[in-house]
Simulated assay, not measured.
Amino acid sequence: MPPETARLPLAHALALGALHGPAELVPVSSSAHVELIPRLLGWPSAALPADVRKAFAVALHAGTLAGLLVLVPLPSPGFAVVATAPAAAAGLLLEDPIERRLGGVRATAAGLVAGSALLVAADARGATGRGAAEAGPADALWLGAAQALALWPGLSRLGLTVAAARLRGFDRGAAFALGRQAGLPVVAGATGLKAWRLARRGVDPGLRAPFAAGAGAALAATLAAAPLRRVTSVWPPAAERVALAAVALAGLRRSPR
């Protein structure tokens, strides 16, 4: 690896871990925030090679997943399989094209705005009355399809699953609960696969400490953010996502990369 790959300050790794964990509990797209905020702040991590940034994302997801497994009830095996299959298939088939074509600031900002619009529109149109316990195979398939669409950076896996659940008639609290449960096996599978790939390649010794710090911060922040599980309003996260997209695009115009 080139020498610059070790330029991930410990303080920045801790800060990004502390951001990533809570962002998985609300529909704001944790990956978009971890990708865009270092660019906006001019942190060295924004200039790291893509493979190093992806490796660091694995560490953050691993820490966050450990916290989510404590906070979020596991879905039933049948629900998990159906809700995971579309995202797993799309990921295996489209991972490389998505990273090549949709990994830039503009595409991520577009995902943030589009995801916000879909979430707000679905919440406004969605009927209410169904509880999480009423979810069946057809509902799981809808949530799985939503998670497959969320491979586009910025759309937010939780945001799209909440939108899908609302359109299926679930009340807002149930939609959030189902969205978080449906996301657990997807996050676990993706993190496990990418961690296996990372283990085969190895990690630069200079990155091990910040990677571990980021994972630990993500775990601690996820657990500390447990009260966010009770938040079911869609407008604040939608507005924050649009604001981040606007700031990111403004920064790109000032300093194109």
Rank of each mutant, 00 (worst) to 15 (best):
V81G: 09
A46G: 00
A132D: 07
A85N: 04
A46H: 10
L74P: 11
A80N: 01
V120K: 11
L69N: 07
A89Q: 13
V120R: 10
V105S: 02
G111T: 03
G104P: 09
E95V: 14
G42P: 01
A50T: 14
A85D: 04
A124W: 11
A80G: 05
F56T: 00
S29T: 01
G115Q: 06
A117H: 09
L112H: 01
H33I: 07
P77W: 07
A59V: 03
A62T: 12
A121S: 11
L41N: 03
R101N: 14
A133Q: 15
V52I: 15
K54M: 14
A89G: 14
A83G: 00
R39P: 07
H61V: 03
L119N: 10
A47K: 11
A89I: 12
A87S: 13
A32Q: 05
D51Y: 08
A132F: 09
P77H: 09
D51R: 09
V81E: 05
A87Y: 08
A114I: 15
R106V: 13
P38Y: 05
A80F: 02
V113S: 05
P27T: 00
S116G: 12
L92Y: 10
I37V: 14
A87G: 09
T84E: 05
G104V: 08
A124M: 12
A133M: 13
L40Y: 02
V113P: 06
A107E: 13
L92Q: 08
G103T: 08
E99L: 10
G63L: 01
T84M: 08
G63P: 00
E95W: 14
F79A: 01
L118W: 13
P38G: 00
P86V: 06
